[in-house]
Write a protein that binds this DNA or RNA. Structure first.
Length: 416
RNA sequence: GUGGGUAUGGCGCAGUUGGAAGCGCGCAAGAUUGUGGCUCUUGAGGCCGUGGGUUCGAGCCCCACUACUCACCCCA
């Protein structure tokens, strides 16, 4: 028996409807917001992620699925969605279309991690990226998409955390101040953080080690170091969210694990799905396009984990749409009418009505039991009477009611 | 990468101090029924995660490995 690779999941026939439900809402919503779908390859040149995501991040350092292909190229399964979109934006000259370009995607992403609740090696993300607007309104729009999405699914009680980690300039100032402060308290930091001071001091803010937390309590706060532009940007985002009545909390310690973020960062967090509570995370990444080889282009977006979303919906008991079941099951009174059933099923299908018949050679009774177990809503028995009169008895399986209809009447009935 | 927990039919689980592998659900066939649902009968399906050890004898005790799982870390 060969089993499934660690950290991956089958989506089985009896549960795929949940995915359809969520995906349909994503597409509906994206249409309403004027987002167009973009599909980029499952794998990219490794260098894209080294440059885009950043080579000090855990994702790039130890979590990528990287291999050398037969042409001796270093290839990596995408560990996140944004870098590929930025690459496509540059490579296809999307910058020369009217800006901003508003895009969404649903894609698999791959990270070599140790699986636990809400964490897999292959998971799926709904992502939104808006390229070509530096305006806070774009940030607000992106956040409002996520917020509206949760609302549409009936999910309540998420916390929206926001922060602004500054642009290149003010982040540098803050980084220096932070480094200086941390150096002064280096004995109290955990070993991991000690090694992080120079490479990525911001990450230390996120450390959960008790001793580090204590140090962080008195650390300089990044919002105090924002330049006037960033400060204004932050305020405008907040005002925009207020006017849409989107609740949020400022979290000066919110740092994201990808290097490309600049300015606005945010997360939607739940406490109900175990330790991996971030359902959606995103922010602004104004330097990414340039980093990937394009001309400087501001951008903002988010990634939303669909497995975590479903986990959340299930633990919250949010009503999911029911599994899709064919409308009608058609069975012959006896073997002589098998082919008449085939014809009827085919006729209904041609009219876009989902219809099925027995393909296992079961007895009449067994077919009835089967139809009941599967949960067909309607039933038609075809025998001599039906063929002679052209009138078919349509039985409602939930209440037992019977309606008499001819062939066309059946089609109209299901189209109602 | 570091810890903890778990491993018995498709799924959920019992299995006493070591002494003939069981139950519920599901699945399949049949009986009954107004053409299904309720009820009844029958059946299929297990190398008890793998490999060692202790013992007359191991699902149970010991060791190793593997897988799954939860948490750290990190992230969606």
């Amino acid at each position: 028996m060969i089993n499934i690779p660690k950290g991956t999941k089958d989506i089985l026939p009896q549960e795929s409807y949940k995915w359809h439900y969520v995906e349909n809402i994503i597409r509906e919503l994206s249409h309403v917001y004027g987002l167009s779908e973009i599909r980029t390859p499952t794998f990219e040149h490794t260098e894209l992620f080294l440059r885009g995501v950043g080579d000090t991040t855990d994702i790039v350092n130890k979590e990528m699925y990287t291999f050398t292909d037969k042409g001796d190229r270093s290839i990596t399964l995408k560990p996140e969605g944004t870098a590929g979109v930025a690459r496509a934006y540059v490579e296809n000259g999307l910058g020369s279309f009217p800006q901003p370009i508003k895009m969404y995607y649903i894609t698999s992403v791959f990270r070599y991690e140790k699986p636990q609740t809400g964490r897999l090696r292959e998971h799926h993300q709904f992502g939104v990226e808006i390229f070509g607007s530096d305006n806070p309104l774009a940030d607000v729009e992106v956040i409002s998409i996520a917020s509206f999405f949760f609302k549409k699914l009936g999910i309540e009680g998420l916390t929206l955390k926001i922060n602004n980690i500054g642009c290149k300039k003010c982040r540098q100032n803050y980084n220096n101040a932070l480094k200086e402060y941390l150096m002064g308290n280096i004995e109290d930091l955990c070993p991991i953080c000690k090694s992080r001071i120079n490479k990525n001091p911001l990450r230390i803010l996120d450390c959960k080690e008790l001793s580090c937390k204590k140090v962080i309590e008195n650390a300089p706060i990044c919002t105090d170091f924002l330049c006037p532009e960033c400060k204004e940007h932050k305020e405008k985002v907040e005002r925009g969210l207020n006017s849409l009545s989107i609740e949020y909390v400022n979290d000066p310690y919110l740092v994201r694990g990808l290097d490309y973020y600049t300015g606005t960062v945010f997360e939607f967090v739940s406490e109900k799905i175990g330790a991996q509570g971030t359902v959606c995370g995103g922010g602004r990444y104004n330097d990414l396009v340039e980093e990937v080889g394009g001309k400087a282009t501001p951008a903002v977006g988010f990634g939303l984990g669909i497995e975590r979303l479903l986990l959340l919906m299930e633990t919250m008991g949010v009503l999911l749409k029911e599994k899709e079941i064919s409308e009608v099951f058609i069975l012959p009174q006896n073997d002589l009418f098998q082919n008449e059933c085939l014809k009827m099923v085919s006729y209904l299908r041609e009219n876009k009505i989902s219809a099925e018949n027995d393909i296992s050679g079961r007895s009449f009774k067994a077919q009835l039991k089967y139809a009941n177990k599967i949960g067909f809503k309607y039933l038609i028995v075809i025998g001599e009477t039906e063929l002679d009169s052209g009138i078919f008895s349509l039985k409602n399986m939930t209440n037992g009611e019977i309606i008499e209809l001819n062939k066309k009447g059946l089609v109209d009935f299901f189209r109602r």
